[in-house]
Design a protein around this nucleic acid. Sequence first.
DNA 1: CTGAAAGCGCTAACAG
DNA 2: CTGTTAGCGCTTTCAG
Lengths: 345, 345
Amino acid sequence: MGERRKAKVTLPDVAKLAGVSVASVSNYLNDYPHMRPTTKQRIQNAIDELGYVVNEQARNLRSGRTGLITLSIPDLNQIYFAELAEEVIKAARTRGYGVIVESTGNDKQRELDSIASMARNMTDGLILSPVKMSNDDVASMEGDFPLVMLGERVFKAPAPHVMMPNEAASRAVTEHLLDAGCRTVAVVGGTLDGSNSSSRSLRTQGYVEAMRHRGLTVDPALVREVGEWTSKNGALAVERMYREGIRPDAIFALNDLLALGVISQLREMRVRVPESVRVVGFDDINEAQYTIPSLTSVNPDRARIAELAVDLILGQVMTGRRASADKYPVPFTLVYRDSSPIMSS
Amino acid sequence: MGERRKAKVTLPDVAKLAGVSVASVSNYLNDYPHMRPTTKQRIQNAIDELGYVVNEQARNLRSGRTGLITLSIPDLNQIYFAELAEEVIKAARTRGYGVIVESTGNDKQRELDSIASMARNMTDGLILSPVKMSNDDVASMEGDFPLVMLGERVFKAPAPHVMMPNEAASRAVTEHLLDAGCRTVAVVGGTLDGSNSSSRSLRTQGYVEAMRHRGLTVDPALVREVGEWTSKNGALAVERMYREGIRPDAIFALNDLLALGVISQLREMRVRVPESVRVVGFDDINEAQYTIPSLTSVNPDRARIAELAVDLILGQVMTGRRASADKYPVPFTLVYRDSSPIMSS
DNA sequence: CTGAAAGCGCTAACAG
DNA sequence: CTGTTAGCGCTTTCAG
């Protein structure tokens, strides 16, 4: 029952009390296989008696590892990234790892900083989801540490790259809508400027491909550019589109927040979803289940993305070698809900 | 020009190349004031030459600090916590600190775990936002490390407690609505069971107080209990309320997600907001600006909460002493938007 | 203003 | 199966 507090008790203290050497205590703590049960017992008693806990920092200095990885994302206020972070934390925890979350605030310098700070050994690896870094920045990334890239905006990073197949997913959405009999599919948040690899370009591209594949022409008036992907801009885009006299039979919103606005605006205008207009979103955020009607959306399988990214880091940590710069597209699923059910209308 | 890589270069290496002692290099790295400029220059040259970076782990072992704090919250999928985490990360960064984010998934054991793991010295302090821990669990928290509690559900923790004044905020909302001439104020998400200190009890309590204060009686039929605070449940609550023939002139949703559903349902039913019914939410999530109409909401000033929590941790880290178990209520603001503008209707 | 030396608390050889 | 010893890379007295 004797409990001690405060004064930090070290491994040698335990050894002394247990009447064994520090090596034995260390062995015991690290599950060294061959050990006399009585010794183990004595050590455990001493540990309990003293309230000993290992000092991870000392352990880390020896082992060269920290049991921590860094996740660097643009902004936790963006639901997609918050949900992704949640999954990364979960995946890391089941593997005995902790996650330092860094939010770069869409700032290029901070993206570069999170790379620079890696060299200081505070964490075992970096999962980086850049939005502002240029290709040159990426290519010139120095430093020899476990790195995994996330997202679309990167080409020649010297590291594995986990991504969701944006184009294929968009194609699948578009095909689903076409299969349902829709012919006038508007794209809210899209852009026909294909000069970069942003989500909006890639997703629009998938739509275009699917249309062409079916022998349909793409009406530029149906591709509605918006600024930020917020629900308000989704609503405004729809309002404007109708004001221009355009009457789509389906609306593909390039993310769920846009889709929330689209649905809300359609309800306002008494346009029935999905009977008159089908609506599909992208990201499958939590809230997609709770809209009225519930929202059909592309689920990027964040859990898989997270696990893969974490495993690619840990693989590098274990082997001490950098993984090759392969692409890892993660399968998505299209989750059919009331805003665009699977049977043709 | 000459760049080296890979082989880790240590402080003694730098000292050797610069022709000075390790102490001087260390002093230089730590901005020791009195130092001959030429020496500084020589050291800096050597550092550049070798591409030296400090090993934080070794530094930490010496100093007993890690430059890291842990933030333990229930779930990043809940927007409120994601936005809070963003602010904590920001506050920590400006103070030179990193944040390990732990998500307890509303699991009591994991809340306790995050306390236990603190003892291992991996981080300098813990900001804990518990939802499941009982008062007893909290009271029995052992361990002598910097701790700050967040949220409402805790009474006798041996640590400072940063919270938002839920009751006062609710009172302010209710008074605002009454001032605007409303008399039938419904509370979506509320409960008249005052037996605990959950957000829903406290917020309802504030409403009740404000009503009583004005000499109004509280109609239990206006306090609409719902399960999870999702927009769908907000919408359903409104639908049900109207089906029962209740016609409020204001709806106070106890969080913004509920409010989104409330607004959406009212639009659906062609009830004009705010002309016929005012709507106010709670939390002021990002999305509140983008609803149509935009949502009046209680802004808990997450930035202040985050900064205060971080500073309370760092204060303890610096002094090496535990802060006393004071309460720190953080002022909220009521953000007036279109769903309930400030001038009386 | 700079150098030498003693650890922070732990693990990993290597003996015994 | 257990003990002794030498560091991991850095900071920090304490002399000079």
